[in-house]
Structure formats: structure tokens, C-alpha cells
Design a protein around this nucleic acid. Sequence first.
DNA 1: TTGTAAGCGTTATCAC
DNA 2: GTGATAACGCTTACAA
Lengths: 340, 340
Amino acid sequence: MSRQRRGAGRVTLATVAALAEVSAMTVSRYFNEPARVSEVHRERIAAAIAATGYVPNQVAGGLASSKNRIVGLVVPNISGPIFASTIQAFHDTLGAQGYQVLMASSYFSAQQEENAVRAFLGWAPAALVVTSHFHTPATERMLASASVPVLEVWDYQPQRQPIQVGFDHTEVGRMAVEHLHGRGYRRIAFVANSATGDHSALERRDGYVQALARHGLAPILYQPDAALPPFEAGKQALEALMAQATRPDAIFFANDNLAAGGLLAAQRAGVRIPGDCAVLGFGDYPFAQMLMPSLSTLRPPAREIGEQAAAYLLASFNAVPDRPAPPAALHCTLVQREST
Amino acid sequence: MSRQRRGAGRVTLATVAALAEVSAMTVSRYFNEPARVSEVHRERIAAAIAATGYVPNQVAGGLASSKNRIVGLVVPNISGPIFASTIQAFHDTLGAQGYQVLMASSYFSAQQEENAVRAFLGWAPAALVVTSHFHTPATERMLASASVPVLEVWDYQPQRQPIQVGFDHTEVGRMAVEHLHGRGYRRIAFVANSATGDHSALERRDGYVQALARHGLAPILYQPDAALPPFEAGKQALEALMAQATRPDAIFFANDNLAAGGLLAAQRAGVRIPGDCAVLGFGDYPFAQMLMPSLSTLRPPAREIGEQAAAYLLASFNAVPDRPAPPAALHCTLVQREST
DNA sequence: TTGTAAGCGTTATCAC
DNA sequence: GTGATAACGCTTACAA
């Protein structure tokens, strides 16, 4: 043979069909609508599959049906404890139905998010999921003109158009203040995330400011240096706040990593927690319970977000063209431990 | 029109080609070998792409070229701190070259790993990466007959066939013993992982047993209940070991989650760390430095594994049919903190 | 229940 | 440098 055929030697539907002495279409039906294949043929096909080790080519199938069992997911960080539960639940729920999840980290950069969305679009995914509602104009355009379901997770903005599965971050800020105020704290500080671009953390701050105002209290805001890793930023924040003339008696950190840094710095500085100063985190990362004192924090419905997002997508895949009702807003819960 | 065309309205290569008044092939070349397209055409094509928002369909391209820019990765847990750095480095390195990473968690189950590998094979990936060297026979068969590079990461077995990027876990066990022995500890216990199926942890145990024997010491092994989450298992282990007639003076935990549980249980039981008993972990999870006392641990070259694995694959994609030289074994480093 | 033909959107190949 | 044509492996649409 002078001219090499492209996919020489590969096991395809045709290979199996020939072995089972049926047409390729019958083998295709065997996988997609087995009930419509006769018993005899099913057995012959099963034998042929076992003999050849055939695995259906999803790429070819996806192209032919223009239905790719792929979903794209962009989060600020695919490793790291913040989105771990969401990712796991989302991934496992969709994976159980034969969907693959394409993931990308935006690292809190709208530009990187845009790149990821564009890359995902090339795979003609069955759905696209992004985190929060801060996008570049180009991303907005791509999401708006995508012909597939688009979800925003880990956020909830009542008036906003795309389907959302998440919670209102300003509510979280208010919950933090109510908890601390209820326990008698009055000079309550907020420590922002060192990662600029974390807009959700700023919404938690806004909620904190609102709730303080309702109680007639003034906000005490601290912004760590942008370059610092969160744990170091938390240390810096606690030291700076404790060096002020009027010390806060409680600190609400934008996340648990920052709060853990604060806890350690407090211990070194001889600041007793919660006696001299209460510490409240956000995220309920797995280590929150391991710290000493254990960290009070606001627990986001991380697993629920992943599950509901996946369930919503699966429902909309099976219910085209009608779309299922969008999920209701979720809520954080306060986990009180020793630090407040 | 009575008969609806399948992909009506979608922007394809043909759409762009028509607009730019060139053939589809020229547009294809514009993306893949821009140098071979004339300046004039490049400009017209760029304009057409901008006007239509065209994004190349990777699925169609992959089918046509039988070169999918997809890599499958199976780890015990895609969320969780253990593989976080490896995943991130692997993902980012490959992502920068336009590859997508399909991920799956085996949850330490060889059967789930098999399912994941089979599912990935359907996407005709450019490479397959699995964790450690414990697979079902079916998985072994699929990996052996795969026509693409297969990598085993997070492990290193000198004699083994597939390319490996990782470290020898028995060496880690020996390092743990040498460290503790060097600091004067003699009754050194090992706490296994509560997750059965974590074969790597058992290899660390084997190394621990070997090294103890060389020093003429007897192993003290503790196996937590299989059902327990690691943090709880660590607590259980410490309590059980401290209730024994002759208490160990050092404990090497199979991972940092277990060790963190041990630290907390020690504090509650009034066991001073490291005065009464030293505690050594494995993994150097991010929280190890946040604990009190901070946790001494063995740091695996997690990021290096991800980077080297990705780099090796990229090299082999570009060097077909010759394959680059397999990477050398990597090593853990001991991170001494307060707990030893 | 089964099969035939056409097409999914791209790239390999070869001719110009 | 450019284009026509035939794959890639599967599914839709329709016919038998």
C-alpha cells in the first residue's frame, strides 16, 4: 500500500459492525437506544465489543450529533479549598451522567476568565459555568450569544439575567456583623482580601458596612498589600489593627486563609482570642476546625451550589427547548467555634 | 425551507472563508500555519473572524486530524490539598499550549480509576496520566494498548515500565524515621490512612518499618477505623496510642490531615507536643504552618511533578515518533517546624 | 427492527 | 500560495 490510510488499525464502529455482522447504525443504536436493537444482535454486538475492546469515539459522536457531553467551568482557583466542594459536587454529579468537565482558573482575573471561556467555546460545550458576575465585555458578549445554557455560580444578584446558583455576598457581610454585634462586639473591623479582583469579597465588605451603619457604628477597613499571600496578609492585618490607638474588639476577615494568619499573629503578639479580640472568617475551609482556637466562620453552601448547578444543567439538557425553573437563592450559615 | 439543515446559523470556517473571499483551507492554514498565508489574505481573514466572532471547532479539528488537544488525568481526589499543586501546575502548563485537561477522582478505588480511564479513552486523548501504580487488570490492559503516552505520577518504581514522574514512597518512610531517630526519638509509631486503597501510604509505612529495623527498633503500627474522616482518624489514633502502657515518643502520620487531628487530640489530652510526643506528617498541606504547634512534615515535590509531567508530554507531542528521555526520580524534603 | 445516504466542521493530501 | 476533494467516526433523516 503506497498511500497510508489515516486511521489505520483503529477500532471503530465499522470494525465492531463487521465482526457482529450488522450495520454500523445498529451498533450505534446499541449504545444510544439499546431497546431498539433485537436481542440476537445485542448479544453479537456485545461479543464483538468485548473482543475488540471498542470504546465509542466521543469526538466523532459529538461532531455528528452536535451534542458534546462537555461542560466548561471557570472558577478563580481550581485547586485551593475555596471551591473544592463545589467543584467536586459539580464534577461528580455531571460525571455520573457521562459528562466531562473542562476546568480553568481565572486567578481572579477577568482577562484570564475571558481566555478560558473562549477556549471552552471551541469545544462546543453543552453548557458554560462561570463564577460571580464580573466579566469583561467580550466575555459578556460570548456568554450572551452562546447557544447553550450559561450559569453563574457562587453569587446571587436578584435582578441579573443569567441563571445563578449561589448566595448574596452582601447578606454574608450583614450576617457577620449581626453575629458579632449580638455577642457584644462594637469595634468591628473588616480585612479585605489581598487578591485584588476578588469582587465577591468586596460585596461582603459592602454588606458589613451597611449593617454597621444600621447599628450606628463606623467601619474599620484594612486592605493588606496586594502582593502578599493570604496567610501573610492576615498576619499583617492583625498586627496593623492591633497597633492602632483604639483597637478593634472583633475582626471579620474576607476569608479563612486571612483569618488563620490573624490567629497566628495574635498568638505571637499576646492578643487573646476571643478575649481581647474576636476573629471571624469566611469559607469554612477544612482547617478552620483544626486551628487553636478553632475558627468561627461563615460556611457557604459550596456542595449545594455544585450539586444544584449540575442538576439544573442536566435538567435543561433533557428538557430542550423548555428550560427548568431557575434555582432559588442559597444562603450561608454561621459556624460558631472558639474564636468568637 | 421544509428541511432544516443541521447546523443552521452556526459560524464555521466556511462562513469566514466566504466573507474573506478565500477558500476554507486558507482560513484553516491561517490558524495552523499562518506563515504560509499571504499578508493580504491574513488581513482579510482576521477582519472576517472579528466580524463573525468565529472560534475554531476543536471537536471537528480533532476528528479530522486525529490529534485531540486533550489530556486525561486521574488522581485520588481532584479537590483536597494533596494533589492541588500537582493539578494546578499540570493544568496551567498544558493549558498554556492550548490543551484541555480532563480530570477524574478515583477516591482511592481502582475500579473508579478504571471507569475514568475508559471514559477518557472515548475522547481519544493525546495522553493519559494516572496516579501511582495500582490498577485493575483492565486498566493495565487499556493503558498498555493505548497508542498515546501514558504517565504514572506521584510515584516512582525503579523497575516499572510506564514513564513515571514522582518519588519513592518507601524512601519517604525512611526519611521520616531518620529524622525522628536523629532527634533522639526511639519509640516511633506509624498511623496509617483511614482510607483503605491508599497504597502509597502503605509504601511509606514499609519504608518506616525497614528503617526502624536497621536501627534495631520495633514498629508500632496503628490503623484507624476505615469509615473515619482523616481528621477524626488522627484524633482516634493519638488517643489510642497514648492509652497504651508504653507510649510512643514520636508519631509519624500517613498524612497531614491525620497529623492535624493528632495535634488537636494531644492538646485536649494534655500531651505536650513535641515534649511528650513528637508529631510528623506527610504532604505539607497549606495548613501545616497554621497549626499550633506548627506541623513538621515531609513535603512532596507536588508542583514539580505537575510541571515535569506536563513538560514531558508536551515534549513527546512535538517529538513523535521519538520520545524524550523519561524524567529522573524526584524526592521529598523534610520541613521541620515545631512539632518535632 | 434494520439499513442507506448524507452530513457534522475540520484537516491531510495532492494538484495547480 | 491556494484550492478541490476526500477523509475523520459517528449520528440524523429517511426508506425499507
